[in-house]
Design a protein around this nucleic acid. Structure first.
Lengths: 357, 357
DNA sequence: ATTTAAATTGTGTCCGTACACAAATTATAT
DNA sequence: ATATAATTTGTGTACGGACACAATTTAAAT
């Protein structure tokens, strides 16, 4: 039998220390001048008792106002970013009564300029904190440096960029997730000698950083655990299905018998659809992220494994990190790698149905 | 760019409706008598604006006191129940300033009587809510009925018992987790023709309910997807390592070449240790729950897969469910199946290092 | 029409903290 | 020693809602 309690308030501390509650307040929050004698009296009492401020009273009385700004790629409903944003919204609800105002800004993830434009508009808004997904490496780096200069704390979600330290990062350890992908796809089935890996044919500054890391982890695992296995790389155009069909037709004509494929992003449903259309049964397909179409493929067997990274929690925690730092003055863990979740037809339902926050 | 705000308080509603804040309060909380005219005026205003009570002010002003009682098996550090209890403690912290007092009672999970004794002691404590792990089916059922009769809401964690509906259940869908275990262990590797399944040789009323379900799901999957596969069942004594060695020695002498084994509880490390000791390499071993020793086995390769069920979150959410029901008067989802997490050497670190709450 | 009871409504205080401001004390200057 | 400034301390109010209690209105009884 264990019990918890103990209610001591500021006025109790004041009484015990023989000072006024104003002085206790000054000691607690390090504001205003306090004579050495008073400070010591209060600190002595604080050491002896264990005081927990009443967060509700504190929140209620606080006169401070905060403005947080979030910068995310524009997105569809029910895709990866939508889930991340849902997490943000959840945290917004909790921050509402803390006088925190949150604004979300969107940029086109295929257009560096749109992103730069958003970045440029932020400083004038005098944010108290910024949450951002630094898809564009260079621009994001420059913006982060600017925020650092302005002394505005910022957090990264989804991906990191080197150069400037954020208050916190929430996202996947991409390299390790590639390792896991390889383990799931071939594991120690040494009879698997060919794997096809699909990737996007894109251009520009666009990140891909995430997928590059994933791929690297994947290849490293294969090299170490199944060195005879060949990895075939095929580039696809996500927005041109007809072209893809031709590319894939040709590839599988030239490489029949390949049964294992992997895609390091959320477009795995496109590949799965192709296999379905081409009546290529018994393919083992692995991809990333729980977007609706992927979930469907997982359930009907067209995709064997999805690797997921709890985007809602990323958004929720990242925004919360700003509040913890600015409002509660708590320490914030700077690097937060998300769990790398493995989803199959057998466990997907419980994953999507369970409210993660 | 999206924004959220809008601060309307009770006194604003009162003003708009032309009544006093007391009346608004009565309408909002359905307490005391309110004339039809007043009620309608207030309700009309409420429909037009969107009022969100300030949870901090509400918590601060509330004069209610609550006593929650939790009933758990006694346990070691860092085992399944310890994690569940950590989740409870986390929630306790959040409930502290809501004037909620939480007491945890322990029983011996191998002794029905100790459990009955705890159950018997609860009603006198006049709990406002109860959280329990109903390992012992019959006794728990009777106790749940008693609580129902006393009109005390209760939640189940870990396992369910039929008969009496709890306010909420948080736990794994055992049957489906067995399915998943089978998929991971044999998947569509049709060359696997033998599997060994270890189970506890125990006696008494003790649940096992969970493991029975897991086993059933496992067998069903094998039967459907790999009907030629034979499942060998071996009973072990968890507290007698020497005896187990003899049993396993004999089994593997009689059945050489079996490479796949499964255990439907957290004692998988015992089996893994045996394999290690007996220099039986390349065994594929699957077990349940993230207890420390299992994690160690997973990392050093002695165990291939662990299936986990987020016990901290079970505890956290279950206790929270009581608060949501009693304090916030919110609806509570009655059945909450936890995600069924798949852990391997490749993703375990991120899982254990990520603070789940 | 009064009185009395019942129903309804309004007022005021408290919860624990933050913070502005006034009061008191101490230091400095003349 | 006194005036003045600087430092330190104490007091009071606001935050928004819960709830006790007083005040008022309406209904019932005589």
């Amino acid at each position: 039998m264990a019990e918890v309690n103990g209610k001591i308030r500021i006025k109790d501390i004041a009484e015990l220390a023989g000072v006024s509650k104003g002085t206790v307040d000054r000691v607690l929050h390090n504001r205003g001048e306090v004579s050495r004698a008073s400070r010591e009296k209060v600190e002595k009492v604080l050491e002896e008792i264990n005081y927990h401020p009443n967060i509700h009273a504190s929140a209620l009385a606080s006169k401070k106002r905060y403005n947080f700004h979030c910068i995310l790629p524009d997105h569809e409903t029910a895709d990866y970013w939508a889930y991340l944003e849902m997490g943000i919204e959840k945290q917004v609800e909790e921050l509402l009564d803390l006088n925190v105002n949150v604004v979300i800004h969107y940029y086109n993830q295929y257009d560096v300029d749109s992103c730069r434009q958003v970045y440029a508009s932020i400083p004038d808004l005098k944010p108290d904190g910024v949450l951002m997904s630094p898809l564009f490496k260079d621009s994001s780096n420059a913006f982060a440096a600017k925020l650092k200069e302005l002394n505005i704390p910022f957090v990264f979600v989804d991906s990191q960029v080197e150069g400037v330290e954020p208050l916190a990062y929430f996202g996947m350890h991409s390299y390790q997730s590639g390792h896991l992908a390889a383990k799931l796809l071939v594991g120690d089935q040494y009879d698997i000698k060919d794997i096809v890996m699909f990737h996007a044919k894109r251009k520009g500054e666009t990140g891909a950083n995430q997928t590059i890391q994933r791929k690297a982890g994947f290849m490293a695992y294969i090299k170490e655990n199944n060195p005879d296995c060949r990895i075939h790389s095929v580039g696809l155009y996500w927005n041109d299905r007809d072209k893809n069909d031709i590319i894939m037709d040709q590839f599988f004509r030239e490489n029949p018998g390949i049964k294992n494929s992997v895609i390091f992003n959320s477009r795995v449903y496109m590949v799965a659809d192709y296999f379905k259309k081409s009546a290529m049964k018994d393919m083992t397909v692995l991809g990333y992220d729980l977007v609706d179409r992927n979930v469907k493929c997982l359930k009907n067997g067209a995709v064997s494994y999805l690797i997921a990274q709890r985007p809602e929690i990323q958004g929720y925690r990242a925004l919360k990190a700003l509040a913890q730092h600015l409002i509660y003055k708590q320490e914030v863990k700077p690097v937060n790698y998300m769990p790398i979740d493995i989803l199959t037809a057998e466990n997907i339902d419980f994953y999507v149905n369970f409210p993660s926050i």
